[in-house]
Design a protein around this nucleic acid. Sequence first.
DNA 1: TGACTTTTCCAAAGCGCTTTGGCTTGCCTT
DNA 2: AAGGCAAGCCAAAGCGCTTTGGAAAAGTCA
Lengths: 358, 358
Amino acid sequence: MVNLKQLSELLELSQTTISRALNGYPEVGEKTRQRVLEAARKHGYKPNSNARKLATGRAGSIGYVLPVGHNVDLDPHFVEFLSGMGEHALTREVDLSLTPAPRERETEAYRRIAASRSVDGVYLSSMRNDEQRISLVRELGIPFLAHGRALEPANGYAFLDIDNEGAFHDAARLLLQLGHQRLAFINGDTNFAFAVHRLNGVIRAMNAHGLPVSALQHHSAAMNEENGYRLAMALFRDADPATRPTGVLSASMFSTLGIVRAFNQLGMRIPDDVSIITHDDVFPFLKPESFSVPLTTTRSSIRAAGARICERLVNIISGKEAAHVQEIWPVELIVRASTGPAPAERRIVRRRPAEAAE
Amino acid sequence: MVNLKQLSELLELSQTTISRALNGYPEVGEKTRQRVLEAARKHGYKPNSNARKLATGRAGSIGYVLPVGHNVDLDPHFVEFLSGMGEHALTREVDLSLTPAPRERETEAYRRIAASRSVDGVYLSSMRNDEQRISLVRELGIPFLAHGRALEPANGYAFLDIDNEGAFHDAARLLLQLGHQRLAFINGDTNFAFAVHRLNGVIRAMNAHGLPVSALQHHSAAMNEENGYRLAMALFRDADPATRPTGVLSASMFSTLGIVRAFNQLGMRIPDDVSIITHDDVFPFLKPESFSVPLTTTRSSIRAAGARICERLVNIISGKEAAHVQEIWPVELIVRASTGPAPAERRIVRRRPAEAAE
DNA sequence: TGACTTTTCCAAAGCGCTTTGGCTTGCCTT
DNA sequence: AAGGCAAGCCAAAGCGCTTTGGAAAAGTCA
């Protein structure tokens, strides 16, 4: 485990030349370079990353402030996202640095990151409606990229988001076209912008279809099995089958696990009694095909987003990306067996339930 | 954003004194210290972390080599684990540094970590039977702590593991006591040590009960919904109800999602036709109570393990922990409604199905 | 061949901290 | 009064790299 100085003595070359040879600068002769490369490999020389960071001012890593706390559940989306980031980070030789911080000390964490220069840039996720972090990191001078966007992308900043509004518009439109007149939306927490966008999409579809907003039962909560179950029970347990919703939109596969459990318990069949469309972030461990009735979904890979975010953030850091690119990914609507004609219409087409279910 | 030098000029003190004052060394007068603290806060002075790392040789972070690659799914366990680590890391002011690496370049990644001194220690997880990393990191001189243990903990090394053997022994014993004579075990990948330990536990219980190993149908695969479904279908679809297994052990809640789906599809009722016990790592987003029939589980919080690993690793790094502490956590067996008497015995106790299910 | 580039290499100055090894004071002994 | 001892402070030497500003060697052109 030699250092630069020792290697330079070994080779009888200056540290400068070695550094240049290794970092691919043109000011060094080809034979010398080969000699250096050879010796470096042979002696297992690896530059000390801290020294390099100090000298260059570059950290070689991108940061994330990891929300922790007793009532904060890092959700499984994160691991998929991380996985995507990691895959790209690998090709750029950057590390990921996580700075844990409870919500109330978030600001402090960003300040520390900025002051200590331990990362070259950060990415922000779980954008809230009243997002404070944008102006904070901007003021601190940390290069950043947002995953998602706040409600009002004031001043313009770089982000990558999916078209949540469009996705849920399309999903709602499909239900409406299938004849569903009463919809329920078990949404994520509307303190987050994505949930608001989704709600807007649903409402736009209903408006376009001439339906009043009152025809929508909307509930907002953290996306997990428990809430899915609880809200579905609240919506359907004592509801009159003639007036209860026949089409349900769900913000996540986890919510849907709970919703489906409630339906089973209440003896409601999918899609005969109720249709359901879920957003799918593409988890390898839980797929829409893995439900008793394969789910119709709006699909967007969060893993791919992770990779792309990493790519863009690295570009932003190195100045290769012009400022404020706002990238919005379209979302696919994949029809599977959980959607069908509304019960009222069903009587008419009952002869062909198989096709109806497709 | 001042640096040490500027602050020292401002205060007309040497850099030494300021550094000492801030780091709590005794060689500095109390009034001076207060003056320094005050000024540091006022000017927002934060030591540059890279300079500090270079000077001290300490990185202030703990590392993990993040497995990436197209067929590598970072599973949701990881995020819970990470969450636990983060919670503790916070109290010790350390960051978590993830170095992505595909499996085949893992060794290289550890070498780079070691050479570049970017972290103070690493934790190892997903221990394999033929674990290579132990000797590698030891040879590289990186302080480490293993989550789990290899089959042969040769030479002794520090680890934290749960009692997988005991957990599945107890689970199997419960099924046997309930009269189940034919068991199935949908295990995790037996290339990993934990899965082998679990299998050993099941076999020990069967031996103790005088049952031959042939009474166990054992399957090993990655723990996810798909495999759970596939294996359960393979086991039960065409099986003779008189000879098929009546008790099932499942290695993870995700597998169990699939298993339960298969049971539903095959019209098998839990626990009337089949009992099931699952291992539960305690995910906030998917709980054993969230199944149509609440699951009997062996439970151990992976989040708590994450916190404990962080705590111990920090101690190991700072030399506070003596070498080679091997910590094994007991696992609780929580009985819920998914276990009941074996069908053959059921006829006898059928009068009291409610109690039987408890 | 001499002047002018270009190539190839180097010494030394940082980067911003910590830490070693003193140097002053002022105070207490004897 | 002289020696001894803390207490409180500082100058300077690293930590291991990158990068600036040359300088020497080599090649080019008239």
